[in-house]
């Protein structure tokens, strides 16, 4: 006796940890992985709780059904995140848990260290990294005493504009370990290990096509570093609706990158740069004003604003709440809160 297979849909396959699993008809990625004994976090299995979040390789992004990305932010979608409980793929895909994405480190050499103001250094190195401006890297370095340290810094460069040159803005402290290390004599020739890229705070091309009508980028201190990357990325990708970039600091002396920002503003008529400090002298157009009030008084439709907030955790948290209560959807507020380093 023969069985007619002609109208049976060809089962799809997934690859996880180098194991191939053939999906049963209508079976989700989560169900198949659990059936094979893999421990995948999960809870509601209805696409609501997001516990079963996984990541597909870049080639597989096109094969994810839209329902498997319901409720995710645009950067999450762009990075290939999906809800494995709601994913019945039509083609073979390779999947992993999100945390596995970038835990390997590469070694490179620092090519440039230049002060941007009294405390902030521009550090450049060359690395063939596949990153989005606004993401961050972990720098691993060993101090004079042989102790290894890890510090996280946001990326200010844009791969399409700066090629393989990666730029970081690093605030140094009197007794900070990185400051002492980088100011050491032969540091320019020293190797540095980097991990990453990490983080979800970056521009997505979808913002040019959805109902977003304004970008608001607000940062305190070196929170400007990721924003400088994000704003140039957005402009380079052709975002032509208004962009408000607000760079803040405690004292007007601490505002940096003024020349570069002015140049960018002249080049792109849709970009509005504001420099805001809580105290100090007014110069170069710096306004002495509270940054929260300044943002509140911007003449923009907050419900159609997509925001990027970077800097100290307290600042990011406070401004996020203010924007959310002004009508900005939670999903439209990307943030990169800087957390204090834990020594060593």
């Amino acid at each position: 006796m023969s069985i007619d297979h002609s109208n049976v849909i060809k089962p799809s396959q997934i690859t996880f940890n180098k194991n191939s699993i053939t999906l049963k008809p209508e079976e989700s990625v989560l169900e198949a992985l659990l059936r094979e004994g893999h421990a995948i976090p999960n809870s509601c299995r209805a696409g609501a709780c997001q516990c079963c979040l996984m990541q597909v390789t870049p080639e597989g992004k096109a094969h994810l059904p839209a329902s498997s990305q319901q409720g995710l932010t645009s950067p999450e979608k762009e990075l290939g995140y999906f809800l494995s409980c709601s994913c019945v793929p039509s083609n073979p895909i390779t999947v992993q848990l999100p945390s596995e994405a970038s835990d390997s480190a590469i070694t490179t050499q620092i090519t440039e260290v230049r002060p941007l103001n009294n405390t902030i250094l521009r550090v450049r190195f060359s690395a063939p990294l596949d990153y989005r401006p606004g993401q961050y890297l972990n720098l691993l370095f060993t101090d004079d005493a042989g102790v290894q340290h890890t510090r996280s810094y946001s990326i200010a460069s844009v791969p399409e504009l700066d090629q393989t040159t990666v730029e970081l803005h690093i605030k140094t402290y009197e007794n900070g370990v990185f400051g002492r290390w980088i100011k050491g004599s032969s540091v320019q020739d020293q190797n540095i290990e980097i991990q990453g890229p990490l983080g979800h705070c970056f521009y997505s091309d979808s913002l040019a096509h959805d109902n977003t009508n304004t970008l608001l980028l607000a940062g305190l201190g070196t929170g400007l570093a990721p924003l400088y990357g994000i704003v140039r990325d957005a402009l380079n990708q052709g975002f032509d609706k208004p962009i408000h970039l607000v760079a803040g600091a405690r004292n007007s002396n601490d505002i940096y990158l003024i020349e570069e920002l002015n140049k960018l503003e002249k080049q792109f008529p849709n970009l509005h740069v504001s420099l805001v400090a809580l105290e100090g002298e007014e110069y170069e157009g710096i306004k002495i004003e509270n940054i929260y009030d300044f943002c509140k008084n911007l003449d923009i439709d907050f419900s159609k604003t997509h925001a990027f907030l970077c800097g100290a955790q307290s600042f990011v948290g406070k401004l996020k709440k203010q924007l959310f209560l002004s009508g900005t959807p939670m999903k439209s507020i990307m943030s990169d809160p800087f957390l204090p380093a834990k020594n060593p």
Binding site: A46, A48, C49
Partner: peptide, 8 residues
């Protein structure tokens, strides 16, 4: 999700 009667 719970209040809407959803899986929880």
């Amino acid at each position: 999700t719970m209040a809407f009667g959803g899986p929880n």
